[in-house]
């Protein structure tokens, strides 16, 4: 091998800034940013716009840092799964040690700066979220139990609580309801993904429900959790976190979501393979809209209340 070919190889594998940014899982970050923003803006305490911007930025960085630590720990299974093979570590562009250093540095940075910008309750919640995602979910539950998604989902459910705490300095019924909504939404969302990305989890040996309990059982679990989620989501509509607009959105979307879960439950593997898991894919896409629409409705309800709008017929 000549020097020139060595140089070319190293050039192709040279980490660019985008590779380091990819460690922060930017797509997951969108969900974190959006739900945290709703938590912050829905809170009854107004926050200075620049402090609100910084709070959301630090929460996003904290979420990204936990993503980097997740990639550092899971590099071995990421290399096996098709969906994750091109991530910076398995593709060889970023070393595991670099990811660890970036993850730890950004974790400390985000927690300290959130504490300084807002309050230490929010910072404490962010620190706990990072700990929960990295240690409890990634290091412990993910490779040990098929309930990994259920319990680990709590990590993704904390951002609205952190946003709320950043504004109010505390925790309340509304922020807990927002937490519960994301928490209950996570299992059907990921199990639908596991149904149509099945070889990935099988190959990596991750004990997803599809691997340990079978695909029939996973379909039952999706339906059961969707029913529980629908009850929670619609009940939230009659609490202080909801309102008529939220309730309308919740009723419509939960009806669609229940229909999707019902269709998944009724199908068997032959039917799913015949149309390349069309129903499961549709349910997964709907789950994204579901969460954004629910949180969007909470945000609009809070904004209307802030501007003094009262639904005349709503007691």
């Amino acid at each position: 091998m000549s020097d020139a070919s060595l140089n070319n190889a190293s050039f192709e594998n040279e980490a660019q800034f985008g590779d380091y940014f990819a460690l922060l899982k930017p797509r997951v970050m969108t969900l974190v940013v959006f739900t945290a923003l709703v938590g912050l803006l829905a809170a009854p305490v107004p926050v200075h716009p620049f402090i609100a911007f910084c709070a959301i930025l630090f929460i996003a960085i904290g979420g990204g840092a936990s993503g980097a630590l997740n990639m550092w720990w899971d590099a071995d299974i990421d290399a096996v799964m098709k969906r994750t093979q091109r991530r910076p570590i398995p593709s060889g562009r970023v070393t595991g040690d670099d990811a660890l250093a970036i993850g730890l540095t950004l974790s400390a940075f985000s927690v300290v700066f959130l504490g300084l910008a807002t309050n230490w309750v929010a910072a404490g919640l962010l620190a706990f979220t990072i700990f929960f995602y990295v240690v409890i979910y990634t290091m412990w539950l993910k490779r040990w139990t098929p309930q990994n998604i259920v319990i680990g989902g709590a990590a993704g459910a904390f951002p609205p609580m952190i946003g709320w705490a950043a504004a109010t300095g505390g925790i309340s019924v509304e922020s807990i309801l927002m937490f519960c909504l994301t928490f209950m939404w996570t299992p059907p969302h990921f199990w639908a993904l596991a149904l149509f990305m099945r070889s990935d989890y099988d190959d990596a040996g991750v004990p997803m429900l599809t691997v340990t309990h079978g695909r029939r059982s996973t379909r039952k679990h999706i339906l059961a959790y969707t029913v529980l989620l629908a009850i929670l989501a619609i009940a939230t509509g009659v609490t202080s976190a909801g309102g008529p607009l939220y309730l309308t959105v919740a009723v419509v979307l939960n009806a669609l979501f229940l229909k999707g879960a019902w269709d998944i439950w009724r199908r068997d593997e032959d039917m799913s393979e015949a149309d390349n898991f069309a129903v499961e894919r549709k349910f997964f896409k709907l789950s994204l809209l579901y969460l954004f629409a629910h949180f969007g409705a909470i945000l609009i309800e809070a904004a209307l209340e802030r501007f003094g709008f009262v639904w005349g017929f709503w007691v």
Binding site: S10, F11, E14, A15, Q16, F17, G18, Y20, F21
Partner: peptide, 10 residues
Amino acid sequence: KRRKSRNIGV
């Protein structure tokens, strides 16, 4: 050249 994007990003 190789590290341009990284340096600008940082």
